[in-house]
Every structure is written in structure tokens, then in C-alpha cells.
Design a protein around this nucleic acid. Structure first.
Lengths: 129, 129
DNA sequence: GATGCCACCTGTAGCCACTACAGGATCAAG
DNA sequence: CTTGATCCTGTAGTGGCTACAGGTGGCATC
């Protein structure tokens, strides 16, 4: 059994975040030592690492909850997992395309400024009717 | 002079958001009619439209404040505007590259699930040591 | 035994940029 | 005169943490 500090190290989830996950019921409450400190077993550490990976992949916490539920389940409904991942992937692709448009617009704006002779074209354009 | 509802329509900034901007001092307090309702002139509408465009381009409010200050200034420091835009553009490109990596990882994950025969490979992978 | 330091504890507030009420006042049209 | 749209203020909620205040417990050192 590990302390919260060790678990933070091992899972890559910060101490405060681990306590936050417990408070929010995203992970079950940890066991406690005689003096009230949290203690974690291997399964708890795996769970936190799983959450960190999901978060790194941009899954919202609500999805993480569902994925954790599915993973508890013996049958591990692969279809459900895939559906969640696919929906998230679509979301990521949408954000990508938004961001690409943004990049084009900003690049253009900055370029206009570089070429500027007189009044700042960026401000001018942003203020246009 | 227009009412807040008309201005929301014209500028594309929602009524609540306009009030929020005023509360936060992002825009100056609007004039008021005899019965206490906000009234806006053309300049106020331009300012709100400017803010909306900046926000659409992903500039944080702190940048918008600075850009508004610069635009008030007669000399309209083009260099400063460009510097802010360039920094923001770098930020956008960084997010783009993060998101692209994410897309690759997610696509791979989902594909593994499609090809799966037995245990859900997505869950398996996310739970791996 | 005192001191210092570290890791841990709880509880609360702050972050960003809104958004969503609740509860009330006033306006314009029929 | 009534209806419904629009406006007002003030406060709380969103997501997902992060930071801080103020305290406890345990161990090593002097």
C-alpha cells in the first residue's frame, strides 16, 4: 500500500487532483492508515493512470466516468468504448478544423501588419463594419 | 442610441455577455435612459464587434483589453498589435500540433477497437502498466 | 526534550469567460 | 387593461482543476 505522494509520482496525477477525484466520486474513497492518511493498492494506481491517459487524450471527465464503469464490467462492452472514442474523435477533428481556420486568419492578419505602411491594418480590420 | 437587445443583435455579443463586459470594465459603462436602461452609440457597437472578432480569433480577454487600449491610442502602435497577434498565433499553432497528435492517437485507438476479436483493446491499452 | 522539516490532512477560494437563473420593473401593442 | 417582450440586479453554476490557509503527525537531528 502506497501513500498519496508515491501514487501521484507513479500515476502522474497530482496529489490535489487525486483528492479532487475522490471528492467528486470519480474514484472510490481510498483506504486510510491508523492516522488517517490515504493508502492505495495496485488497482487504485492503475485506475488513476487510466484516468490520466484518458485526460491526456482529451476525454472529458464525464466520459472517463463511463469508461471506468465499462472497465469494471466483466464483459467490457467494446462497442460502447468505441462509440465514446469515436464521438470524441469527431469532436477533436472539429476542433482541429476550427483551429486551422483560425491559424489561416491570424497568419493573414499578422502578415498584413508586417507589410503595413500607415495605420495598423489588424486593428482596422477588426474594427471594420 | 440603441438598446442592449439591438446591440446584441448588431454586434453578435449576447446581452448577458455585454453586461458582463461592463461589469468587468472591459468596455466603459453604457449611458442610461431616464428609466435606467442601457443605451449604446455607434462607437460602443464597434467596440463590441471588435471584441467579438478578437474572441472568435481566440484572443484571451487580457489581450483584448490591451488591443482595445492600443486602438484608443492615436498612434495605434502597430508593432504592439503585431507582437500580440504573433504570440497568439504561436499559441494556436502549438494547440494545433497537440490536437493533431491527439487525433492520431485516438484514430489508432478506435481502429484497434474495430479490428478487435476479444477483450476491448482500448481499455486494455489505457490500463496498461 | 526541543527543534526543524516534510508529507499529509481539511476546507475554501480562485481560475477563465461566460451562462443561467431568480425575482422584479417597465415598455409597446392590441 | 392585459399580455408578453424586454430590460434590470444579483448570485450561482460550468469544467477541471489549482492554490492557499491553517493544522496534524512522524522522524531525524541537536
Amino acid at each position: 500500500m502506497r501513500t498519496i505522494g508515491q501514487v501521484a509520482e507513479l500515476s502522474g496525477v497530482k496529489i490535489e487532483t487525486i483528492r479532487y477525484y475522490e471528492r467528486e466520486g470519480i474514484v472510490p474513497a481510498a483506504d486510510r492508515s491508523a492516522n488517517g492518511r490515504r493508502l492505495y493498492d495496485a488497482a487504485a494506481i492503475s485506475r488513476l493512470r487510466f484516468i490520466r491517459r484518458c485526460r491526456d487524450l482529451g476525454f472529458p471527465i464525464s466520459d472517463v466516468r463511463t469508461l471506468l464503469d465499462l472497465s469494471e464490467n466483466a464483459s467490457k462492452h467494446c462497442d460502447d468504448v468505441r462509440a465514446i472514442s469515436e464521438r470524441h474523435l469527431l469532436d477533436v477533428r472539429e476542433r482541429l478544423s476550427d483551429l486551422r481556420e483560425l491559424e489561416v486568419a491570424l497568419t493573414e492578419l499578422v502578415q498584413a501588419c508586417v507589410d503595413a505602411q500607415s495605420e495598423c491594418p489588424t486593428l482596422k480590420r477588426l474594427f471594420a463594419d
